[in-house]
């Protein structure tokens, strides 16, 4: 496979084939090692200009992308919506065209509206990477979750992964569902029915109504962040009750037939969707997720820029 291996943009995992997803994960493997070196830099994207265009606040994802870009030697610029022309009423398409007029190579975009990354990709020639668009997809999060699961279990095929929490509003859930099911994992979703999207079973997942059922069934739990706004919007009565009914606690996990890997895309609400002793416990892979995030993003940037998948040989020069 060559430059066209992923197409121009990465807007989601839904449009990708199993082979393309596997390519990204395999390409991430040698990049993991770069971050372990004393000099964390390879020249793969030297001379490339990348704009990180963040219309929503983000710490982890933005920094992770920025590290990935810098470790590949790209030149990067960060644009946050607040304080930019966006807050002066500029439209997304105008922002994009102005950036393009400065001859950039790639845009990493985080935006509150579903479809924003695709919208941008259809209107500019630069590569566009979706760093989370509304409730649609967060493909690099899905990929880093998959890489972490593959590290932990040595395979994805046949693995049982339960995604727990607010599926309705979650782009992480959607990217996980597409990516995992394409690579042969079994996926279940578990959460209050008021936070499950319509027709979710048609995405190829099982619905488990109770967290206890998910814990009995799964090899791994991907625990989603429960946002405070959901309570204010009337989807659940209180965070306290959410924790009682759906919280992932060590007491509940103790009844699992086997130890479960615990994932969380962060930032965590300790004591709401996940208890601290679980988050910090021996089966938590939450920090390895973060480490893998940089490698996966390096792989995506590298492949979209036209890099050859057998980077490993080149990178060890």
């Amino acid at each position: 496979m060559t430059a066209a291996a992923l197409g121009k943009d990465l807007v989601g995992l839904e449009p990708l084939s199993a082979e393309q997803i596997r390519l990204i994960l395999d390409t991430a493997e040698p990049f993991k090692e770069v971050s372990e070196r004393p000099i964390k830099k390879v020249p793969a994207l030297r001379g490339k200009t990348i704009v990180n265009l963040f219309f929503e606040n983000s710490t982890r994802t933005r920094i992770s992308f920025e590290f990935a870009e810098k470790r590949l030697s790209a030149d990067t610029v960060n644009v946050a919506a607040a304080g930019s022309s966006v807050s002066k009423g500029e439209t997304l398409v105008d922002t994009a065209r102005n950036l393009e007029a400065m001859r950039i190579d790639m845009v990493v975009i985080r935006h509150g509206s579903s479809g924003a990354a695709r919208f941008l990709g259809e209107r500019i020639r630069s590569n566009v990477i979706n760093a989370g668009d509304g409730k649609h997809e967060h493909p690099t999060q899905g990929l880093l979750d998959m890489l972490t699961l593959r590290d932990r279990f040595g395979r994805l095929e046949g693995l049982k992964v339960a995604i727990v929490g607010d599926i309705l509003h979650s782009r992480v859930a959607r990217s996980n569902i597409w990516g995992l099911t394409k690579l042969g994992a079994e996926v279940a979703v578990c959460g209050p029915p008021s936070l499950l999207p319509r027709n979710v079973r048609d995405l190829g997942v099982t619905v488990l109504p109770r967290i206890e059922d998910a814990i009995q069934w799964a090899d791994a739990l991907n625990v989603l962040r429960l946002q405070l706004e959901r309570m204010q919007a009337g989807f659940i009565p209180s965070l306290r009750e959410y924790n009682r009914v759906f919280g992932v606690s060590s007491e509940r996990l103790a009844r699992a037939p086997k130890p479960l890997a615990i994932l969380h895309p962060g930032p965590m609400n300790r004591g709401v969707e996940i208890d601290s002793d679980v988050a910090d416990g021996p089966h938590s892979v939450i920090l390895p997720q973060v480490t893998n995030g940089v490698a996966v993003r390096m792989a995506v940037l590298y492949l979209l820029a036209g890099g050859s998948p057998d980077w490993g040989a080149e990178g060890s020069e």
């Binding site: 579903s114 509304g134 409730k135 649609h136 782009r171 959607r174 999207p197 027709n199 979710v200 995405l203």
Partner: peptide, 15 residues
């Protein structure tokens, strides 16, 4: 419309 397409696209549906 609230249905499979809104779920896939991550758009808020109107039942």
């Amino acid at each position: 419309h609230e249905g499979l397409v809104s779920t896939r696209l991550g758009l808020k549906g109107i039942p």
